[in-house]
Design a protein around this nucleic acid. Structure first.
Length: 195
DNA sequence: CCACACTTGGCGCCTTATAC
DNA sequence: GTATAAGGCGCCAAGTGTGG
């Protein structure tokens, strides 16, 4: 399936699960209603920044928008083959995400990222009703990661633990691409009963 | 000839506004 | 909820200029 179609379905499903209208999600996420409609119909290729705004409003990690939701039970396997993994390219920065973990509901999710030289992505992540932790393990090249007011420069072998509760920036200040692994977990802190 | 810097124009994302 | 138009913005490739 085409990645934009996958994102479109997931976004619609998550919005329906909250029973929110386009307007309701637009207001919470600060993404325009027109754009959300385009994304849900697969007629736009959203940037990572926009997807993160939507995911934050929906109280899920960005990775939740790339889950394969309709796999028949018979096809559910503890192994996700390289050829079957969802790969997505951010049209804004050109960074490539590969979603490694086989099942959507696993406690741990792994994502491999290939980040072009000189590029930068900022996430205006705010508070969610879910506690999302992630660790960044540098494999190749270098990245400068800013969480809130603090920034770190990561080199191969370095591992940064962070919580997704404040704005953060991923930047590759070098002339070479960078590659890193992201491991993330989600703890549901409470249920939002009425929005 | 080459290497580099700058401009130009096109394209895609995203917005607001409007109409249906 | 869908569809369209207009405009801002940033990226990128092609073209042009400059100095070696």
């Amino acid at each position: 399936m085409d990645v934009n179609t996958l994102i479109a379905r997931r976004l619609k499903a998550l919005r329906d699960a909250q029973n929110w209208s386009l307007d309701a999600l637009a207001e919470r996420s600060k993404v325009s209603r027109s754009n959300i409609s385009l994304i849900e119909r697969g007629q736009s290729s959203p940037t990572a920044t926009v997807l993160d705004k939507l995911a934050t409003a929906l109280n899920v990690p960005l990775a939740a928008l790339f889950e394969q939701d309709d796999a028949p039970a018979a096809e559910t396997s503890p192994v996700s083959r390289a050829a079957d993994q969802t790969v997505w390219t951010d049209p804004g920065s050109g960074y490539v995400r590969r979603h490694l973990s086989p099942t959507a509901r696993s406690a741990i999710q792994l994502v491999e990222v290939d980040f072009p030289a000189g590029q930068r992505v900022s996430y205006e992540t705010g508070a969610r009703d879910a506690d999302i932790h992630q660790q960044i393990w540098m494999l190749e090249g270098a990245m400068e990661i800013t969480v809130g007011d603090t920034s770190w420069r990561l080199k191969p072998g370095d591992c940064l633990a962070m919580r997704l509760d404040s704005p953060n920036v991923f930047r590759n200040p070098t002339r070479k691409r960078a590659r890193y692994l992201v491991a993330l977990t989600t703890f549901a802190v409470n249920e939002r009963s009425n929005g």
